Lab assay of single mutants.
Amino acid sequence: MEVRTIKVFTTVDNINLHTQVVDMSMTYGQQFGPTYLDGADVTKIKPHNSHEGKTFYVLPNDDTLRVEAFEYYHTTDPSFLGRYMSALNHTKKWKYPQVNGLTSIKWADNNCYLATALLTLQQIELKFNPPALQDAYYRARAGEAANFCALILAYCNKTVGELGDVRETMSYLFQHANLDSCKRVLNVVCKTCGQQQTTLKGVEAVMYMGTLSYEQFKKGVQIPCTCGKQATKYLVQQESPFVMMSAPPAQYELKHGTFTCASEYTGNYQCGHYKHITSKETLYCIDGALLTKSSEYKGPITDVFYKENSYTTTIK
């Protein structure tokens, strides 16, 4: 009895394709271990004539594949690729409408935090270190965002349907971005203890939790000093293409032309909904596939993004 075979390709990165001759009487799992086709788990399936010449994702289970996976995804987590594939199996079914010149995501599976993050990423200057993220990001900007969303979920250790947080998501993504040249110098002034300067680099240099107003941050924000008295913390120097200011959701007025974009969060910790506000020729609110415009805006804002380049204080 002759062994019926077909020729397929296996890959971990969709760049390096490895030619395989597979036995049609055995499952993919018996031949390769966990195997995925377009995100779908085909591990328990036997090869079919229609699979001839198709590319299958496999887990990096030998040295060659491990090197290829690390170079593309910059992670050695053995569960990463499987999590990416199972997320992709959902995100490829989502709709990605162009809204006001940006790629958004039609609401499904509690994905409003991903839509808000995706919209924000198209408006701030950011370059990702893992080629996987950078490639998928370019495709997302062009309207094909399924891979990018699935990668975000995998890097953030999230599953489809789980509630997510924009600030946490951005923080994970910033860790995989090139923020080497970003720098922030802060000064804390206390009447009792004097003053202390701190220099922050990388992710810490672009994120701040405690106030939404970048102007206020430049002037000074009140913080408790270690001595128990009130101290003032203010920005001395900022070198970065953008800054992200966050605070627990509270009524906040966004003035046209003073910011790049913002995240609105309605609801409580267990259950809520994100919308995205962007400042173009007027203010726009993007909620999944829905767009509304207004000249002014007041609502429960939790993150505001500002364009920056270089700032030095005039406070002496």
Rank of each mutant, 00 (worst) to 15 (best):
E2L: 11
E2W: 08
V3T: 11
V3C: 14
V3N: 14
I6A: 09
K7S: 12
K7I: 15
K7C: 08
F9K: 10
F9R: 15
T10R: 10
T10Q: 12
D13L: 04
D13F: 05
D13S: 06
D13W: 05
D13R: 04
N14C: 14
N14M: 06
N14A: 07
I15R: 12
I15L: 08
I15N: 09
N16H: 14
H18T: 13
T19H: 09
T19E: 08
Q20S: 15
V21C: 15
V22E: 03
D23S: 11
M24E: 11
M24A: 15
S25L: 12
S25P: 06
S25E: 09
T27I: 13
T27M: 07
T27G: 09
T27W: 15
T27N: 12
Y28H: 05
G29C: 15
Q30F: 06
Q31C: 13
F32R: 07
G33W: 05
G33Q: 05
P34V: 08
T35F: 06
T35V: 05
T35S: 08
L37S: 13
D38F: 13
G39K: 05
D41T: 12
D41L: 13
D41H: 09
D41V: 14
V42K: 10
V42A: 11
T43Q: 15
T43R: 11
T43H: 12
K44W: 15
I45W: 15
H48I: 15
N49Q: 07
S50Y: 12
S50M: 13
E52H: 12
E52N: 13
G53R: 13
T55D: 05
T55R: 12
F56N: 04
Y57V: 14
Y57W: 11
V58C: 10
P60Y: 07
P60N: 07
D63Q: 11
D63Y: 09
D63P: 11
T64V: 11
L65T: 14
L65I: 08
L65M: 08
R66M: 13
E68M: 09
E68L: 07
A69G: 07
E71Q: 10
Y73W: 05
Y73K: 03
H74V: 04
T75G: 04
T75S: 14
T75M: 14
T76E: 15
D77L: 06
P78Y: 11
P78R: 15
L81K: 06
G82F: 09
R83Y: 06
Y84K: 04
S86F: 08
S86H: 05
S86Y: 08
S86G: 09
A87N: 08
L88H: 06
L88W: 13
L88M: 10
N89Y: 10
K92R: 12
K92A: 09
K93H: 12
K93N: 13
K93R: 13
Y96K: 03
Y96Q: 02
Y96I: 03
Y96H: 02
Y96M: 03
P97L: 15
P97V: 14
P97S: 07
P97C: 07
Q98M: 15
V99T: 07
V99F: 15
V99H: 10
N100E: 09
L102E: 03
L102V: 05
L102I: 07
T103P: 02
A108P: 02
A108L: 04
D109N: 08
N111T: 01
N111L: 04
N111S: 04
C112K: 01
C112Y: 03
Y113P: 04
L114N: 04
L114D: 03
A115G: 05
T116D: 05
L118D: 05
L118I: 09
L118F: 11
L119G: 02
L121D: 03
L121F: 11
Q122G: 03
Q123V: 06
Q123T: 05
I124R: 04
L126F: 11
L126N: 04
L126P: 08
L126R: 03
K127I: 09
F128V: 01
P130T: 12
P130L: 02
A132S: 08
A132R: 04
Q134R: 14
Q134P: 03
D135L: 12
A136E: 14
Y138C: 15
R139E: 11
R139N: 12
A140D: 00
R141C: 15
R141N: 13
A142H: 14
G143M: 04
E144K: 11
N147I: 10
F148H: 03
A150F: 03
L151C: 03
L153M: 10
Y155N: 02
C156F: 03
C156M: 12
N157M: 08
N157T: 06
K158M: 06
T159M: 09
V160F: 05
G161Y: 03
G161I: 03
L163Q: 06
G164Y: 02
G164W: 03
D165W: 00
D165E: 08
V166S: 05
E168S: 09
E168T: 15
T169W: 02
M170P: 03
S171R: 15
Y172L: 12
Y172C: 11
L173Q: 00
L173E: 00
F174H: 00
A177P: 03
A177T: 08
A177D: 02
A177N: 01
L179P: 04
L179N: 01
D180V: 08
S181E: 15
C182Q: 04
K183V: 11
R184P: 01
R184K: 03
V185D: 04
L186F: 14
N187H: 14
V188I: 12
V189M: 11
C190Q: 04
K191E: 14
K191T: 11
K191D: 09
T192M: 13
T192S: 14
C193W: 00
Q195V: 12
Q197K: 11
Q197P: 07
T198Y: 10
K201G: 11
K201N: 13
A205C: 05
A205K: 00
M207N: 03
G210V: 01
G210D: 01
T211D: 08
T211E: 11
T211A: 12
T211M: 11
T211W: 02
S213W: 03
Y214G: 01
E215H: 07
E215P: 06
E215Q: 08
K218T: 06
K218C: 06
G220R: 02
G220W: 01
V221C: 08
I223T: 14
P224T: 13
P224E: 14
T226K: 13
T226C: 09
C227E: 02
G228D: 01
G228K: 05
Q230Y: 12
A231F: 01
T232Y: 09
T232E: 08
K233R: 11
Y234R: 12
L235Q: 01
Q237E: 15
Q237Y: 11
Q238C: 01
E239Y: 11
E239C: 13
P241G: 07
F242I: 01
M245I: 02
M245D: 00
S246N: 01
S246K: 01
S246E: 01
S246P: 02
A247P: 01
A247N: 08
P248V: 10
Q251G: 06
Y252D: 00
Y252V: 10
Y252C: 10
E253M: 11
E253W: 07
E253D: 08
L254I: 01
K255F: 08
H256K: 13
G257L: 04
G257P: 01
T258G: 09
T258S: 12
T258P: 00
F259G: 02
T260E: 15
T260D: 02
T260R: 06
C261S: 01
C261R: 00
A262T: 01
A262G: 02
E264L: 06
Y265W: 01
Y265G: 03
T266C: 08
T266N: 07
G267F: 05
G267D: 07
N268G: 15
N268P: 08
Y269V: 09
Y269R: 15
C271E: 15
C271G: 12
C271P: 00
G272F: 00
H273Y: 00
H273K: 00
H273V: 00
Y274G: 00
Y274P: 00
Y274C: 00
K275V: 11
S279M: 06
S279T: 07
S279V: 05
K280P: 00
K280A: 12
T282Y: 13
L283D: 01
Y284H: 07
Y284E: 08
C285H: 06
C285N: 05
D287T: 00
G288W: 01
A289M: 13
A289N: 13
L291D: 06
L291Y: 09
T292H: 11
K293S: 13
K293P: 14
S294R: 13
S294I: 15
E296D: 15
K298Y: 14
K298E: 09
G299W: 00
G299C: 01
G299V: 03
P300M: 15
I301V: 08
T302C: 07
D303G: 00
V304Y: 02
V304R: 00
V304K: 00
V304I: 15
F305P: 00
Y306L: 01
K307Q: 10
K307R: 14
E308D: 09
N309P: 08
N309Q: 14
S310L: 12
Y311S: 08
T312R: 14
T312K: 14
T312V: 15
I315D: 15
I315Y: 11
K316F: 08
K316H: 15
K316G: 09
